Computed example of a mutant assay.
Amino acid sequence: MTSKGHFITFEGIDGSGKSTQARRLAEHLRSLGHDVILTREPGGSPGAEEIRALVLQGDPDRWSAETELLLFTAARRDHMERLIQPAVDAGKIVICDRFADSTRMYQGLSRGDLRGKVDTLHDLMIGREPDLTILIDMNPGQGLARAKGRQGTEERFEDFGTDLQEKMRAGFLGLAKEFSDRFRTINGAQDIDAVAQDVQAATAAYLSSSG
């Protein structure tokens, strides 16, 4: 059904429900006949998944913000080369759980004031933005409680606590204004089905306007 490829990303603080909504959108679009690839960052390709283990596990102080920036950019470059760009070029819809906007927040704003370096590296090594970014907005305390409740092994960033999540939320809302042409902000405090309906509506509007 899809003739033109599209690149859609999901962003939000930890525990916002973006991963669930990314999966639900993929299922919805497939039911409409679209060819959809669901992926994530860091990760999505074999090399990037190896880097994911390095940056999401271990002590919160394991890496500096500068080192994280280099690791995430390396993972993203591999992801773009091996999965995202070939799929978009083939006319598929790629849905990615996090992308460069997360790096702009976690390393560029909230931990190291490295936004300029993040953007410079992105322009140099990645060179493209998503076509549509869905921001699932949520209260940081509620999101962090959800994230910690998962009791997984990839909790390095959650372990920085509520202060980081507060900065992240404000930063994401700032990005939504800065890149208002591609961001759509969804109220993540609603029940899961209501959020999914809002996500589907925003995506349908984008797809109809993009031809």
Results as ranks from 00 to 15, higher is better:
residue 195 V to H: 04
residue 149 G to P: 10
residue 65 A to R: 04
residue 77 R to D: 03
residue 32 L to D: 09
residue 147 A to V: 15
residue 169 R to W: 03
residue 104 R to S: 14
residue 62 R to G: 03
residue 37 I to F: 02
residue 42 P to G: 01
residue 193 D to F: 05
residue 130 P to T: 06
residue 126 I to R: 04
residue 85 Q to D: 07
residue 48 A to K: 12
residue 69 L to H: 02
residue 154 E to L: 12
residue 177 K to Q: 15
residue 58 G to W: 14
residue 121 L to C: 07
residue 131 D to Y: 06
residue 185 T to F: 11
residue 173 L to N: 12
residue 206 Y to M: 10
residue 14 D to A: 04
residue 191 D to T: 06
residue 129 E to H: 14
residue 117 K to M: 10
residue 121 L to P: 04
residue 108 G to P: 06
residue 133 T to N: 09
residue 97 D to K: 05
residue 87 A to L: 00
residue 196 A to M: 12
residue 208 S to N: 09
residue 52 R to A: 08
residue 149 G to W: 15
residue 1 M to W: 00
residue 193 D to L: 06
residue 55 V to F: 04
residue 18 K to Q: 07
residue 72 F to E: 04
residue 185 T to I: 11
residue 66 E to M: 08
residue 17 G to D: 03
residue 197 Q to D: 08
residue 167 K to P: 07
residue 138 M to K: 05
residue 93 I to H: 02
residue 178 E to K: 14
residue 142 Q to C: 02
residue 51 I to A: 11
residue 36 V to P: 06
residue 169 R to Y: 09
residue 206 Y to F: 15
residue 103 T to S: 06
residue 61 D to Q: 08
residue 113 D to K: 13
residue 166 E to T: 05
residue 66 E to C: 03
residue 45 S to L: 01
residue 141 G to W: 05
residue 108 G to N: 06
residue 96 C to E: 12
residue 4 K to N: 13
residue 31 S to D: 09
residue 183 F to R: 11
residue 49 E to Q: 01
residue 108 G to I: 00
residue 181 D to I: 06
residue 73 T to S: 13
residue 147 A to E: 09
residue 203 T to C: 14
residue 138 M to H: 05
residue 145 A to T: 11
residue 108 G to M: 01
residue 202 A to N: 13
residue 34 H to Y: 15
residue 35 D to Y: 02
residue 169 R to D: 12
residue 103 T to D: 02
residue 98 R to A: 15
residue 169 R to M: 05
residue 70 L to V: 10
residue 161 G to E: 12
residue 173 L to V: 11
residue 156 R to M: 08
residue 160 F to H: 15
residue 17 G to I: 01
residue 105 M to D: 04
residue 175 L to C: 13
residue 210 S to E: 14
residue 27 E to K: 07
residue 115 R to Y: 08
residue 152 G to N: 08
residue 54 L to S: 09
residue 11 E to R: 03
residue 90 A to T: 10
residue 92 K to R: 15
residue 122 H to T: 14
residue 50 E to D: 05
residue 22 A to F: 05
residue 17 G to P: 05
residue 163 D to A: 10
residue 170 A to R: 08
residue 142 Q to L: 13
residue 165 Q to N: 13
residue 106 Y to S: 07
residue 114 L to S: 13
residue 162 T to V: 14
